[in-house]
C-alpha cells in the first residue's frame, strides 16, 4: 500500500486543485467554492505520492459532526485504494476531534463512491430529491453517515 503524504491545502494550491476537480467531475466545484472553504476555515487537505498531488479533501466541522464536503482522487490514480486512504484520514480527524458522526452526500448514480462508503461503515441516512445538477435535469443526492460511537470507544484501528 502506497503511503500518502498529507498537507494542508493553501489558497496558492487552489488553481491545481481546481484543475483536478474539473478532470474528475462532470459538475465540478468552482474555484470560488474552494477559496470560500479555505477562507471560512474549513479543513482542507492535499494528498500526494512522490511529491505528486493525487487527491484532496474538504471537511467542515460543526459541533460534533464532521461533514465531508469534497473528496477527490485524480482520475489516473483511481483504483489504487487512495480514496479509502483519504476517507480513513478524514475519519481519523473526526475521531481526534471526538466527533460523533461523519456525514457526506454522494450522487445517486455514483455507485463506485457509494460502495467505498458502505464498505467503510457508512449507512444511507436519507435521499435529497433533485439535489445535484445532471445532464438530463437533476439527480438525487444520497446522504450517508458513519456513526463514530463504536470507533471512538474501540479505537481507530477498527478502520
Amino acid at each position: 500500500m502506497t503511503e500518502l503524504a498529507i498537507s494542508q491545502m493553501q489558497l496558492a494550491d487552489v488553481d491545481k486543485v481546481w484543475q483536478m476537480e474539473k478532470q474528475a467531475n462532470r459538475f465540478p466545484w468552482t474555484k470560488g467554492n474552494f477559496e470560500d472553504c479555505l477562507k471560512g476555515g474549513y479543513r482542507s487537505f492535499l494528498y500526494s505520492v512522490a511529491d505528486e498531488m493525487i487527491g484532496y479533501s474538504v471537511v467542515q466541522s460543526v459541533l460534533d459532526e464532521v461533514h465531508l464536503l469534497n473528496i477527490c482522487v485524480k482520475p489516473t490514480s483511481q483504483g489504487n485504494g487512495f480514496g479509502r486512504q483519504i476517507l480513513n484520514h478524514v475519519i481519523g480527524l473526526a475521531l481526534e476531534q471526538s466527533a460523533s458522526i461523519v456525514v457526506l452526500e454522494v450522487r445517486a448514480s455514483n455507485f463506485r463512491a457509494q460502495q467505498l462508503y458502505l464498505s467503510t461503515g457508512f449507512n444511507e441516512m436519507s435521499v435529497r430529491r433533485g439535489y445535484y445538477p445532471a445532464e438530463q435535469g437533476r439527480e438525487d443526492g444520497v446522504l450517508m453517515g458513519l456513526e463514530l460511537g463504536m470507533l471512538s470507544q474501540l479505537g481507530q484501528n477498527l478502520l
Binding site: S61, L63, D64, E96, Q97, S98, S152
Partner: peptide
C-alpha cells in the same frame, strides 16, 4: 466531556 471537546474542536 466528549461533546465539549468536539464543540471546541470544531472551531479549532
Amino acid at each position: 466531556n466528549r461533546l465539549l471537546r468536539a464543540i471546541f474542536g470544531s472551531i479549532n
